[in-house]
Simulated assay, not measured.
Amino acid sequence: MLKEVLFGVPAFMAFMLLFGPLAAGQEAARENYRIKPSDVVVPRELKPGDYQRIIRPFENWTLICDENLKSRERVCNVTQIIENGVGQIAFSWSLAATKKGEPYMILRTAPVARSDGRISLQFEGRKEPIQVKLDGCSHTVCVGMLPIGPMMKEQISKSTAPAISYPTTDGRTISVTANLKGLSTAVKAIK
């Protein structure tokens, strides 16, 4: 006879104490559990443990640095995420650099953006908004790129709060207000 015991209590009794009796015709549902994988995706050529991510919060921005511990190669970006009331990302942008060190912003919208649309960045005191063409969309995000030129450097130094908007596939326009305050401080911390 097989005896199953949980902390000195037969398993069936422990189940009844934890979950209560089952109704007639109801069977115990087994939930599937799994170990949640890391949010950090390790490059294929590295083993787990050979890669690390450092996250530092700043005002309105988060500095994220990923480092290959074997080659001591580090890649950083500074990111701001704007979400709606239920936690869905409406817009995010990251200040990054090309391999040659040229700064640019990676702009991301919700996947409902029109893939042939543009992201509009309206800065206070400027008549015309900056229009950023979307480079493409997936089922999770749409992406556009904005090189950092003199005008954007000026806006970053002024810590402005641009109005950002983009059209959606169902004819709406999503509009949010971003904030460049804290970006310069986060960038200085990379060094």
Rank of each mutant, 00 (worst) to 15 (best):
C76L: 06
K153P: 00
Q52K: 09
I148P: 00
C65V: 10
K70I: 15
S159W: 00
L107P: 02
G101L: 13
M152L: 15
L46N: 11
K153N: 09
V141L: 08
E102Q: 13
G125A: 03
E31M: 10
Y104M: 09
R114L: 13
I81S: 13
L146V: 09
T79N: 03
G144K: 08
P103Y: 13
E45V: 11
N84V: 11
D116M: 05
T79Y: 01
L95R: 01
N68K: 04
A161K: 12
N32K: 13
P57E: 15
L46Q: 10
D116V: 06
K158S: 08
I156A: 02
I106T: 14
P103A: 10
D66Q: 08
G149I: 02
R30T: 09
Y33S: 07
T109A: 01
S115W: 07
R108C: 03
E128G: 00
V141H: 11
I81H: 04
P162G: 00
T62C: 04
R44A: 14
K153S: 08
G101S: 07
I119M: 01
I119F: 03
L69M: 13
A161Q: 14
I130T: 12
K153F: 00
L134G: 03
G85T: 13
E83Y: 06
G87A: 07
I130W: 04
Y104C: 06
P37S: 11
K127W: 05
R118H: 07
P37V: 06
A110H: 14
V86D: 11
P150H: 06
N32D: 08
K70V: 15
N68R: 03
E67K: 10
D39W: 07
P48N: 14
I89C: 00
L121H: 03
R118D: 05
L69V: 07
P37F: 04
T109E: 02
S157E: 15
F123P: 00
R108I: 09
Q155W: 02
A90M: 15
V112K: 01
I156E: 06
R34K: 09
S157G: 01
E45C: 02
E31F: 11
T98I: 08
S157F: 07
Q88N: 10
L46V: 12
Q131C: 00
P150W: 05
K127Q: 09
